[in-house]
Design a protein around this nucleic acid. Structure first.
Length: 455
RNA sequence: GUGGAUGUAGUUCAGUUGGUUAGAGCGCUGGAUUGUGGUUCCAGAGGUCGCCGGUUCGAACCCGGUCUUCCACCCCA
């Protein structure tokens, strides 16, 4: 009895029509990355758990897919932990590999491991799937592609500016209206410092990240639950209520943070970024958003998030600066900054808004109808010559009924069909049918090439 | 991980208070048309009603479990 085939929860198959559209996204993203001088790398799907664990916060560790050790993986597990049934403890004994959760941490590992070979500053792009054991929803998958660009080994804020340019360029090319939100972890640290709660930085950021979603009341409630003193919460209020232009906000926050060295550093970084950004022709709005926090806890400086303006979906691009990521792997003092484009969410947005170019569906330009062996051997060399001219051409692989072959061309949206039978072989002229308007012409080889190249 | 919804033909969906043989549109296959698709007409194939169990004389329908997809929380691309 054959079982019904299926794939794991949160994963998907992609058919030809979807792949054409997905490749359109990958191609434009990649071409912009290259335009800015980034170089490609790839890393394995699996990493050692030791390089993955502890980099994404407590939640992140839970969302890692772990791979069981090969062989009889239970033999090395201590008896007491087995009987205890403590999954967390048991994991260390039965699993030492995991599927990568993002591309940034593997990249940091790559840089440290290949430090003698890479030229700093190292600008790399990487387009590969990542896996998260999240509960799937719309726009949330367990396997999805990230398109990362990072510059590592350069502290310059020029990199932050260039990343924003890249975001702008890519979304212009894809025709998606977006807003870039930017903030700085140093400012957030400064805030925590000023209100006297430097060790509560993560709780504070996570809570205020939800400001526009749940409102100020509930944010305050959450802060209280996390053990923040009343007074600290009160001190936080003016910061949450900042308004005005980016510059105006920075002026206000500077005043609040005047006693915090790190906070002022963050403010000055943001000032520089906006300063350098000003004369550039950036199409999309770039907004300083002090409630933007981002959960990944390796960020230390600028943080970015990009939202689609015309569809309600999670962020479609995110990133930031990380000063210590390579330090964890034994190479301190190398700062990096990067962003990640979520290809699958970009696809969902473009599909929903019908932004994919129409002609993207066409792959084959010309189909030769197959009438039989004699006609086939006459056509085959002609087909090769046409392909040599760079025209995508197919010949139907068997002498099926005309109706079937025409139907194939129709379904595949092939714009031209070549018909070669007795008459054509004798005259040397090929009958070319335009599938759009049904018109037919008898053309010489050169005329046919001419006709198809002009399209 | 917590809470809530959902699942019927390839697909989108009907299916009455539990009652004989579970329907439709689109798609698919064949024919009208042995050298002409996309339009039209005719015919046909295709379903263990997500899966497992229970209640019942009888379950697509009621109950329990499980899986999928979707929504909210959490988090994120």
């Amino acid at each position: 009895m054959a079982q019904k085939p299926s794939i794991p929860k949160g994963t998907r198959d992609f058919g030809p029509s979807e792949m054409v559209k997905r490749n359109y996204i990958f191609d434009t993203v990649k071409s912009v990355f290259k335009l800015y001088g980034f170089q490609p790398i790839e890393t394995p799907a699996m990493e050692n758990l030791s390089t993955l664990m502890g980099k994404y916060g407590e939640e992140g560790d839970k969302l890692l897919f772990k791979v069981l050790n090969s062989g009889d993986f239970l033999t090395n597990a201590p008896e007491n932990i087995l009987t205890e049934k403590n999954s967390t403890k048991l994991t260390h004994h039965i699993s030492e590999k995991g599927l990568r959760y993002d591309l940034t941490v593997p990249f940091a590992r790559f840089v440290v491991q290949h430090r003698e070979e890479v030229q700093f500053p190292f600008k790399r792009y990487q387009i590969q799937p990542v896996w998260r054991a999240d509960k799937p929803q719309k726009g949330r998958y367990r396997e999805f592609y990230q398109c990362d660009v990072d510059v590592i080994g350069s502290n310059s804020l020029l990199n932050e500016v260039e990343l924003i340019q890249i975001v702008d360029e890519i979304y212009n090319r894809l025709n998606i209206r977006v807003a870039v939100k930017i903030n700085n972890r140093k400012i957030l640290s400064g805030i925590a410092e000023v209100i006297g709660q430097p060790d509560k930085i993560i709780d504070i950021t996570v809570a205020i990240d939800k400001l526009d979603k749940i409102g100020i009341e509930k944010v305050n409630l959450e802060l209280e639950e996390k053990g923040l003193p009343r007074q600290a919460i009160t001190q936080l209020q003016p910061i949450l209520n900042l308004s005005g232009s980016n510059i105006e906000k920075l002026v206000q926050i500077k005043e609040v943070l005047k006693t915090s060295e790190i906070g002022l550093k963050g403010v000055s970084e943001m000032e520089t970024v906006f300063d350098w950004l000003a004369p550039l022709q950036i199409q999309c709005p770039v907004e300083l958003d002090l409630t933007l926090a981002r959960g990944l806890n390796y960020y230390t400086g600028a943080i970015f998030e990009v939202k689609a303006l015309d569809m309600q979906i999670g962020s479609i691009t995110g990133g930031g600066r990380y000063d210590d990521l390579t330090g964890i792997f034994g190479l301190p003092g190398v700062s990096g900054v990067g962003i990640s484009f979520g290809a699958d969410r970009i696809y969902d947005v473009m599909d929903h808004l019908d932004l994919f170019p129409k002609n993207a569906a066409t792959t084959t330009q010309l189909l030769f109808v197959n009438f039989g062996e004699k006609e086939q051997s006459w056509c085959l060399p002609v087909v090769s010559q046409i392909r040599a001219k760079g025209i995508t051409t197919e010949i139907y692989p068997e002498p099926a009924k005309m109706k079937k072959q025409m139907g194939y061309a129709n379904d595949r949206k092939i714009p031209f069909v070549a018909i070669v039978g007795e008459v054509e072989m004798n005259s040397g002229l090929i009958t070319l049918k335009d599938m759009e308007n049904g018109e037919q012409y008898k053309l010489s080889f050169d005329e046919l090439i001419d006709k198809l190249s002009s399209k």
